[in-house]
Amino acid sequence: MGKYLVSPSTHQAPNGRFGASFSFQRSPGNGSYCRVFRFDKTFASAEAARIFAVTQGWLQSSMPKPPVC
């Protein structure tokens, strides 16, 4: 997504539901960094978790100045 690389991921929780996460990487140039965002919310399907992760990644990459942890 532009100068960012967003990689969504899902994982199955012990209760059978699915969790969502994504990694957010900025390209080298102005200093590179990588952040991993994991969410507490769980979903009934892996597809729903993936859509959530993609949406959150898109929101993060569209911010003019992403927050730094």
Rank of each mutant, 00 (worst) to 15 (best):
M1K: 03
M1P: 05
G2Q: 12
G2C: 05
G2K: 14
K3C: 02
Y4V: 09
Y4W: 13
L5F: 07
L5C: 01
V6L: 04
S7H: 03
P8F: 08
P8D: 10
P8E: 09
S9C: 11
S9I: 04
S9Q: 13
S9V: 05
S9H: 12
T10A: 05
T10Y: 05
H11L: 11
H11P: 01
H11W: 15
Q12K: 14
Q12I: 09
Q12E: 14
A13K: 14
A13E: 15
A13W: 07
P14K: 14
P14Y: 09
P14N: 13
P14M: 10
P14R: 13
P14E: 13
N15H: 07
N15F: 02
N15S: 13
G16Q: 08
G16W: 12
G16H: 10
G16S: 06
R17N: 14
R17P: 02
F18Q: 02
F18W: 15
F18C: 03
G19D: 04
S21I: 01
S21F: 00
S21Y: 01
F22Y: 09
S23H: 04
S23M: 06
F24D: 14
F24E: 12
F24W: 04
Q25W: 07
R26S: 13
R26C: 11
R26I: 08
R26Q: 12
R26P: 02
R26Y: 13
S27F: 05
S27A: 11
P28M: 03
P28G: 12
P28E: 13
G29E: 06
G29C: 01
G29A: 06
G29T: 02
N30T: 09
N30Y: 12
G31R: 09
S32E: 06
S32C: 05
S32Y: 10
Y33W: 15
Y33R: 12
Y33K: 08
Y33G: 14
Y33I: 07
Y33F: 15
C34G: 03
R35C: 12
R35N: 14
V36R: 05
V36I: 10
F37M: 08
F37H: 09
F37Q: 08
R38L: 00
F39N: 04
F39S: 03
D40E: 10
D40A: 07
D40I: 00
D40R: 11
D40S: 10
T42C: 01
F43M: 08
F43K: 10
S45Y: 07
S45C: 07
A46T: 05
A46P: 08
A46M: 03
E47V: 09
E47D: 15
E47H: 11
A48S: 14
A48I: 03
A49P: 05
R50P: 00
I51F: 02
F52E: 03
A53R: 05
A53C: 07
A53F: 04
V54M: 12
V54I: 15
V54N: 05
T55M: 07
T55S: 11
Q56D: 06
G57T: 07
G57K: 02
G57S: 08
W58Y: 14
W58I: 15
L59K: 10
L59C: 07
L59F: 06
L59T: 08
Q60A: 14
Q60Y: 00
Q60D: 06
Q60P: 00
S61D: 06
S61V: 01
S61M: 06
S62T: 15
M63H: 00
P64K: 02
P64Q: 03
K65N: 06
K65T: 04
P66Y: 01
P66T: 06
P67L: 13
P67H: 13
P67G: 12
C69V: 10
C69L: 12
C69Q: 09
